[in-house]
Design a protein around this nucleic acid. Structure first.
Length: 104
DNA sequence: CTGCTGACGGTTC
DNA sequence: GGAACCGCCAGCA
């Protein structure tokens, strides 16, 4: 029995280096196709207290939803992982994770 | 104009 | 009290 929050955290931790994932995807992978907003809350709450690779989580447009310095931080971290920003957006076709391995 | 998607909020069990 | 679900709203293809 895995909590929705735990699944989300696990998924985020399963994102490969140099790749990204969207909210809707994570929600579906966590078992809640409607949980996209939940993911946002979880991320916002956990990212500041735990060292989650939250910087690999973006919205479906391939852009950063985080305002302020944290958004700027995320972009920098992603660029360090090899993610190229195209006009402030990421090529989801290239960098978005299509499937996870732990989902056996 | 239309539909989707949320870094949210409130509500409910 | 905590964790999940639903809903309103606004921005962008």
């Amino acid at each position: 029995m895995t909590l929705f929050t735990e699944e989300v955290l696990e998924i985020i931790n399963s994102i490969p280096h140099g790749k990204v994932m969207t909210y809707g995807q994570i929600a579906v992978f966590a078992g809640n196709p409607r949980g996209a907003r939940q993911v946002s809350r979880i991320l916002h709450g956990m990212s500041e207290k735990y060292q989650l690779p939250w910087h690999r989580v973006i919205n479906s447009k391939g852009k950063i939803s985080l305002p302020g310095e944290w958004g700027n931080r995320q972009r920098t971290l992603l660029e360090q992982e090899g993610v190229v920003f195209k006009n402030d957006s990421i090529d989801l076709k290239i960098y978005q994770v299509q499937k996870l391995s732990f989902n056996d």
